[in-house]
């Protein structure tokens, strides 16, 4: 039972969950961002264990840039020693705890007996190629639509951030 894969999974899962818990409990923005880094990198490690190496590399590639940006926003939009104080009243915390318990139970029941009809398990062979083939043949329209949506978001962000040449920029909120 105690195979190398199991040990690696436990270590990665612990790191991922610890990163998540720290993210919720730390009080400084930049600390939280560093906590997310651990979560995301551990999740990429779990992808490697599932032999989805392409997904793992992309996960790190995308999120290392994204996290750096989040961190910059955190730095630029908050004061250096700004801390978020814990708020919440007693009964609210109890309800939250109950909610978390219910969610945990629901997920546990859902996942524990989950049985994917065992598909042909050749998924890990050349998975980069398989992802590419699937994306560009079966799912070409959703894929292209996604890129259009992203482009729209990009243009929208530029328009929102652009200063008006004529105006003073004070009418912007």
């Amino acid at each position: 039972m105690l195979s190398g894969e199991f040990i690696a999974f436990i270590a990665l899962a612990l790191a991922a969950i610890m990163g998540g818990v720290l993210l919720l409990n730390l009080t400084k923005v930049v600390h939280m961002v560093v906590a997310i880094v651990f979560t995301f990198v551990s999740i990429a490690g779990i992808y490697v264990l599932l032999s989805a190496e392409f997904l793992a590399a992309v996960q790190i590639l995308i999120y290392s840039g994204a996290i750096t940006i989040i961190m910059l926003f955190g730095i630029m939009l908050t004061k250096h020693n700004d801390e978020s104080e814990a708020k919440g009243i007693g009964w609210r915390k109890v309800f939250m705890f109950l909610g978390v318990l219910a969610f945990g139970a629901a997920v546990y029941i859902g996942i524990y007996d989950l049985d994917f009809a065992s598909e042909p398990s050749e998924l890990h062979v050349k998975n980069t190629e398989q992802i590419g083939l699937a994306l560009y043949s079966d799912y070409i329209i959703p894929f292209e639509l996604t890129s259009v949506v992203l482009l729209v978001a990009l243009v929208g962000a530029i328009i929102l951030a652009r200063k008006d040449d004529g105006g003073k920029g004070e009418d912007k909120k």
Binding site: V34, V37, V41, A57, V58, Q59, I60, L61, S64, G65, I67, T68, M71
Partner: peptide, 9 residues
């Protein structure tokens, strides 16, 4: 390329 991006963090 992915892992080298982590250094910036």
């Amino acid at each position: 390329i992915a892992v080298s991006g982590l250094t910036t963090i």
